[in-house]
Design a protein around this nucleic acid. Structure first.
Lengths: 146, 146
DNA sequence: TTGGCTGCAAATATTTTGCACTGGC
DNA sequence: GCCAGTGCAAAATATTTGCAGCCAA
């Protein structure tokens, strides 16, 4: 069977000559099992449960490292903290609930075609892409608005 | 003929009971004639040429007001300053050059269909959308990379 | 053993806010 | 003349960095 995300991240760290510390292990583990696109604060809280002395700076440094290694993707939001995706660290669309801040991964076809068409018509060499849809998730639609 | 963007912005300000100050006029004028998606600093520099005592805070407050009125759209970037679009203040895709930071507006069909499909499949009520393609623009491709 | 990693605190960058003064209406 | 708007400086937010000590390899 294919390696888990956790195993991939760990292997990549080791291969590139980075040290495996308890703090990094805790960050890796949390990112590898979170489909919720956690914020640095989310990761920090979770990691402190395992390893109480962990600092916020170390979490920032670790996610930056994982980003460099291609093992995590940063979703920057200018109006709130950034979020991180350790499960699918490559460009893909997101559905963002503006009420509860949940972020989901929809299935969406045809993005590669769209990108290719755009590159052809504009002359840009397109390297990456970001596609976010903002709205109200089904759960928040049920729970009446105050 | 239809009103210019400048005229629309000004009319909207007046209609909503906001005062028309020289500083606001200068910001409006600059946004109405900029296809470059300027940053607050860009606007600040331009406005100071017309009206030297203008403060950065006033520029921030003015773009925030225009955003509220629907006369400007904010393009948030977590890793650099935000950018503003006064010409097309509604969601549309952007082509961002990561070398020279130029932002262009490509023509792209089928986004409404994509959004509708996504809403149907996910149950989200989609309110807005953000679509950015990052790469190297034709100009920067010519000027060899260092 | 040793240099990369951690944790703390200070620095940075961007945007927002409090408040006294001013000028548009 | 009134009060929204301005300008300044301070605050708030999010992230990065310098550095002394520590520990994974």
């Amino acid at each position: 069977m294919p390696p888990t995300r956790f195993q991939s991240m760990l292997a990549n760290l080791r291969t590139q000559g980075h040290r495996v510390t308890p703090q990094r292990l805790a960050v890796l583990r949390y990112l590898a099992e979170s489909a919720e696109h956690p914020s640095v604060e989310d990761i920090y809280r979770a990691v402190k449960a395992d390893f109480p002395t962990t600092s916020l700076a170390t979490v920032y440094k670790t996610v930056a490292l994982l980003k460099e290694l291609g093992e995590a993707m940063e979703l920057g939001f200018s109006d709130s903290g950034n979020r991180y995706d350790g499960l699918r660290p490559y460009p893909h669309p997101h559905l963002v609930c503006t009420r509860c801040r949940k972020i989901m991964d929809p299935d969406l076809e045809g993005i590669a075609d769209l990108t290719a068409e755009l590159a052809r018509e504009s002359g840009f060499r397109i390297l990456t892409q970001r596609m976010d849809f903002f709205g109200i998730c089904p759960d928040c639609q049920k729970n009446a608005s105050p």
